[in-house]
Write a protein that binds this DNA or RNA. Structure first.
Lengths: 234, 234
DNA sequence: TTAAATTGTGTCATTTCAACACTAAAAACA
DNA sequence: TGTTTTTAGTGTTGAAATGACACAATTTAA
């Protein structure tokens, strides 16, 4: 059956922007390609959509392949389709935006793919239009972290408020008032006190919270605003 | 040259959700297909990406083809890629979200495509997964009209504040307080008083404003919030 | 036990927001 | 002609949210 004989058949790629947070910096999981073309150069983790594979399944497959993780926070971001974007062959790339708890992934799988966690500031030149994809993903992170509770995807299951604050300070690259941040965060009702304290601290130990999964789902689409006003004009 | 011999080549479609506003209702521009497959059924306006065509150019081409318009507000929305979504052949569809000033389009071109403006409430069953695409676009409209000044794309070049209010009331399907709406809108500094009044009115004539194009660009990414709190929990 | 660093809670003035009352303009109609 | 009806435009006020800032509590190390 061929209902559309004259239309072009095109390669459909999937590329993944994977963000992590090490407690200090936002990092990207990038791979050094050990295959042609562009062998030896840095790129996003990616692959091709299979003939009978759902698009989102493809993204999950590729993310799982690299990290060994099953339940990754992943959103479809944007499809890049400039005619010459892949010099090898016409390829349309669907870009996915993923957030992972940086300590959860399978570091063996990562190593075998020649992948590394790299801070945003020190990221290398990437192949094709991958740099544009990264810029788009950073924009998306800034935009969405202000409006939805996606920041929780980047910190451990049990986290402290100061930890979250450092995350937001890293995302927006500005200092945030500790007291106002804490008040705003607690007022969401999304945090459950685990009763434990953070023992890694060398000074006062902070309370460990976990997410209220029920409320998280219910409130995901309600509008937060952790972005300070000073950012709003940008 | 074939660097990726084993990967699948797939049809890449472009489908467009086109919203308009007639002063009372939000409407969709839908076509009744006069070609196979699914001839005679309702669908979104669409087509296939050409072999050497940029993705966004393809969307502009398809929109121009239907409406005769060149400068349409258009954003890429989401790519739909379930394996069986088009029973004819494996097709990945990139969906675009377009807003037009409903009186601007070329109604001859629309007529020749068997297209009609249809209110959201009375929209017919659509082919394939087009209904899901429409739902996604409505969600996007609600979300984004609250945060960005995209509402202006749906009203005439010169518009009144009550006109805009009716638009927002239609988008969110709720009544909005006239006085608070006006104050909020004027405080953005995006409106320029044209000095004219709306002569279509049978009562007090409202002031006609136009957009401050400079400020519109500068403020596009600043966060508005025209969505009333009552909507935030949804 | 004192100092240094960090966490947790409180206060207060300013701003924003939602709810509501009043005035102004324009046409229809008595 | 002036009264009614409808819609547009501006003002007020109390409540809630926000940003700036002070102080107390906890923990380790000196």
């Amino acid at each position: 059956m061929n209902n559309y004989p004259q239309a072009a058949r095109i390669l459909v790629a999937i590329d993944c922007i994977i963000f992590g947070f090490d407690g200090k910096d936002i990092k990207l999981l990038l791979i050094k390609r050990n295959f042609d073309p562009e062998k030896g150069k840095w790129s996003l983790m990616g692959g091709f959509l299979d003939a009978n594979e759902d698009l989102n399944d493809g993204a999950v497959r590729i993310l799982n392949n690299l990290t060994g993780l099953k339940d990754i926070y992943v959103e479809q971001l944007e499809t890049f389709g400039k005619a010459g974007r892949d010099p090898g062959e016409r390829t349309v790339s669907v870009v996915f935006f993923a957030l992972i708890k940086i300590d959860d992934h399978d570091s063996e799988a990562v190593k075998s793919h020649n992948a590394s966690w790299i801070t945003l500031d020190s990221r290398p030149k990437l192949i094709f239009d991958h740099e544009q994809m990264v810029l788009r993903a950073i924009e998306h992170l800034k935009y969405n972290a202000a409006l939805h509770p996606i920041g929780f995807e980047l910190v451990p299951e049990r986290f402290t408020i100061p930890q979250l604050q450092k995350l937001y300070e890293a995302i927006y690259n500005i200092p945030i008032d500790r007291r106002n941040f804490s008040r705003k965060l607690l007022s969401t009702g999304l945090l459950i006190d685990t009763g434990y304290k953070n023992n890694n601290s060398t000074t006062k130990k902070a309370t460990l919270y976990k997410l209220d999964a029920e409320r998280y789902k219910a409130k995901f689409h309600s509008f937060w605003n952790f972005m300070p006003d000073s950012m709003k004009s940008q």
